[in-house]
Simulated assay, not measured.
Amino acid sequence: MLLAFDYGTKKIGLATGNDLIGTASPLLPLPSHNGQPDWDRVAALLDEWRPDTLAVGLPLNMDGTESPSSARARKFARRLHGRFGLPVVMVDERLSTREARERTGQRGPDPKVDSMAAVVIAEGLLNGAEPIPP
């Protein structure tokens, strides 16, 4: 079982991933204030789902280089590991929002898109995407 995060400074998309059957399901996104989630809500999610691994999307530029958003996502991933002690990996999330919009049929900002992007991140890892250390 994994819990995937599509990190954002205003909201964080969430999805669970089942490594036995290779599928992922969206959860309600978490609000984020100044890039910080409600850590108590994160703890409650971890207690509820009991994941073995946490996956955080790494927003890379199309040429594979890192951006300021990459640094924020890496910091979030390190904080997850530091607070909860679970293994945390990052997954290249290029085009995940685009795919999430296609899957949901939404064009603009929408909570469904954030969590569907987390589904894309989880499915990438479950289907063999190379994990990236935070």
Rank of each mutant, 00 (worst) to 15 (best):
I12H: 00
I12Y: 01
L14Q: 10
A15M: 07
A15Q: 08
T16G: 05
L20N: 08
T23N: 09
S25Y: 06
L27K: 10
L27I: 08
P29M: 11
P29D: 13
L30M: 11
L30A: 02
L30R: 00
P31H: 10
N34A: 15
N34Y: 10
N34K: 14
Q36V: 12
P37C: 08
P37Q: 08
P37K: 01
P37N: 09
W39A: 00
D40A: 14
R41K: 14
R41P: 00
A43I: 03
A44G: 07
L46A: 05
D47T: 11
R50D: 08
R50A: 13
P51V: 01
T53N: 02
T53Y: 06
T53M: 09
L54K: 02
A55G: 03
A55P: 01
L58K: 03
P59Q: 08
N61E: 15
D63H: 08
E66Q: 15
E66T: 15
P68K: 13
A71P: 00
R72E: 06
R72D: 03
R74E: 10
F76E: 00
A77E: 03
A77Y: 04
R79K: 10
R79P: 00
R83N: 13
R83Q: 13
L86E: 05
P87D: 10
P87M: 04
V88N: 02
V89M: 03
D92N: 14
S96Q: 09
T97M: 13
T97H: 12
R98G: 13
A100M: 07
A100Y: 03
R101L: 08
E102L: 15
E102F: 12
E102Y: 11
R103Y: 08
G105E: 05
Q106W: 08
G108H: 14
P109N: 14
D110N: 14
P111E: 15
K112D: 15
D114H: 13
S115T: 12
S115K: 01
S115P: 05
A117D: 13
A118I: 05
A118T: 07
V119N: 02
V120G: 06
I121M: 08
A122G: 04
G124C: 07
L125R: 00
L126E: 07
G128W: 11
G128V: 13
A129G: 05
A129P: 03
E130R: 13
P131C: 10
I132V: 15
